[in-house]
Nucleic acid binder design. Structure first.
Lengths: 355, 355
DNA sequence: TTGTATGCGTTATCAT
DNA sequence: ATGATAACGCATACAA
């Protein structure tokens, strides 16, 4: 019962081979005689050696096999978004073949407790590469850290300059497509329900001043797309992308005297909430009011409604990010890639009521 | 433009101090003169040195600052569950002060592509400790790996033997409490909607044979609690914990000739679905049928209903797990801890319709 | 407060 | 197919 744990050198000695041979048995990088392999493996069992210490191996190799994923805010909050969940799935898929794992990192709020801790994990985490999700102004600091460490980095849904490969979506165009669909149906009185304009996420009608200070790329781009078709539509921002927030926005919108015949929501969850609010107000969807979403995710509990929406390849986005970082780790350089949404007509849009 | 990256030795030389002094400047473990510190920091900037290499540091320290979190199945699927999200939040909170990050690991399905890869990440990941979530039979393999590596491990919602600290919930008792509540109200015809009986998650009525082969602890315990009060209640298992599955189960239940006056669901999401199914069938909740949930999470979109449910301290569970692993890392030993749910009366339960 | 010396456990390279 | 050697980059015990 030695306190010290066995090392590969111990195993080699026990097996009567050199350390390099023992190492090779575990890595499989070089052919080894079956007999030798067995001797080493047996010795390992005897010494309760369970394989090379990952810490030492990563120092030697210069690789840890870990990809950092940087979120902003609470983890639970981030995973509230079905799109983020799908992206993580794709990301995990893409890095798994390389034997890499995903390290969750928070883009810490500075005000949090001891400010000395801030960003500590991102600076000190043994990551080979990083993926930043939703790269806003607030993520800038994280980006700087990663870049200064000269770690390969990929950004999802955000602009980090031309040196950083990004995984993008045609948000603006896609949003204009659904909006156009409504216009063709004959809708003219349309209201917009948007994602938060910034991280603090204030709820309410968006005036010009606020519209000029939007810091969230996704929100800004989708808004712009809608504006191309309905330049003067009133827009109300939600505090986050959720059904509950959609309900709140929907109530406000349907309470007005000049009820719109259609609502363009910037996410499927918000759209689901708007539909609930419509039902609440005694309006039928789509007969009395049309509602469109964005994302093309399955909204749990929304059946029998099927949203008219723009489906985005969320899982594919994650996978692309994963492929990009692994490519960069191989020394190849990855390019920015823009995915496109596809229009999906559901049963939540129809001709305006008066037509 | 030297190809090789600067090391702390380079920085020390540039600053005209020893390597150990430079090291101390970055770690802060020992006081250093302001002048010296500045010299070192300046040198670091000049050499574009961004701090100690985490890989080397972790080898030297014997710590990587990473806690592995093992899930079963897809990441996106795991985070679908609001309780899991809350636990992750708590876990992240608890390990953050130690500067630790969370590494997502999948308890890979063996059938997946090259079977050689299976468990590869768990065996080779540089983790200081591990947290297993929902430790079923299927997780056994992961547990074995971690134990053989002699890494501190904590299990959430699952039994891993007396040597492994667990974070538990009084599932059985808690479920009996809500059931009792219904009984006191006068309900006798009650139906149960349960979580999946095993990972494969088959949907349908549970017969005796199936009830005997349940592999999911949480489900079994809650079922037992309900059975203490309503021994003969028919039980239908859902494929997963979601509103949609609750709707499906609810439809089946309300379609029968002998409609129950109350439905006990094993999760809030399932309960939300049951409520929808009731509405669909023209039943009012709680006037015509009472519905109870389990978890006490905010179900997005369920307002104005407030479920009668058992609130579980999900975030606190994660935090406890985090504290347990950090304690074990300090050399202290952590004990199994059982949390208790608290009954919350909402507006989804009432007297049975005929009373 | 600073410097010296040592080893953490592995694996790549090269020679045999 | 196997072995000898040399880093990988750092943090600590201890001495000064």
């Amino acid at each position: 019962m030695n306190a010290r744990r066995a090392t590969i050198a111990d195993v080699a000695r026990e097996a009567g081979v050199s350390a390099s041979t023992a190492s090779v048995v575990f890595s499989g990088k070089t052919p080894v005689t079956d007999a030798t392999r067995q001797r080493v493996l047996d010795a390992a069992v005897r010494l309760r050696y369970t394989g090379p210490d990952p810490r030492a191996a990563s120092l030697r190799r210069g690789r840890s096999g870990i990809v950092g994923v940087v979120f902003q805010g609470h983890l639970g909050g981030a995973f509230l978004d079905p799109v983020t969940r799908a992206m993580m799935d794709g990301l995990a898929d893409a890095v798994a073949p390389q034997g890499a794992g995903l390290l969750l990192l928070r883009d810490d709020v500075e005000g949090e407790s001891g400010s000395g801790e801030s960003g500590a994990t991102l600076t000190t985490a043994p990551i080979d590469a990083a993926v930043l999700i939703g790269c806003n102004a607030r993520m800038r600091a994280s980006l700087e850290i990663v870049l200064s460490r000269r770690i390969p980095v990929v950004v999802i849904e955000g602009d980090a300059g031309s040196d950083v490969p990004a995984v993008l979506l045609d948000n603006s165009f896609a949003q204009s497509v659904v909006a156009e669909h409504l216009k063709k149906l004959g809708h003219t009185r349309v209201a917009l329900v948007t994602l938060p304009t910034d991280v603090s996420g204030e709820r309410g009608w968006i005036n010009e001043q606020r519209e000029a200070t939007i810091t969230v790329d996704v929100m800004r781009d989708r808004l712009q797309g809608a504006r191309q078709v309905f330049p003067d539509a009133p827009a109300m921002s939600a505090r986050n992308s959720s059904i509950d927030e959609g309900v709140i926005a929907g109530r406000e919108i349907f309470a007005g005297s000049d009820r719109p015949t259609a609502v363009v929501a910037q996410s499927d969850l918000l759209a689901a909430g708007v539909i609930r609010a419509a039902e609440e107000a005694g309006l039928r969807v789509p007969e009395d009011v049309s509602v469109t979403g964005f994302d093309g995710v399955d909204v749990d509990g929304l059946a029998p409604y099927l949203l008219t929406t723009m489906s985005q390849p969320a899982t594919e986005k994650g996978r692309a990010a994963g492929r990009a970082v692994t490519a960069m780790l191989e020394g190849d350089n990855a390019a920015t890639i823009e995915f496109t949404c596809v229009f999906r007509e559901g049963n939540t849009t129809a001709l305006p009521p008066d037509s």
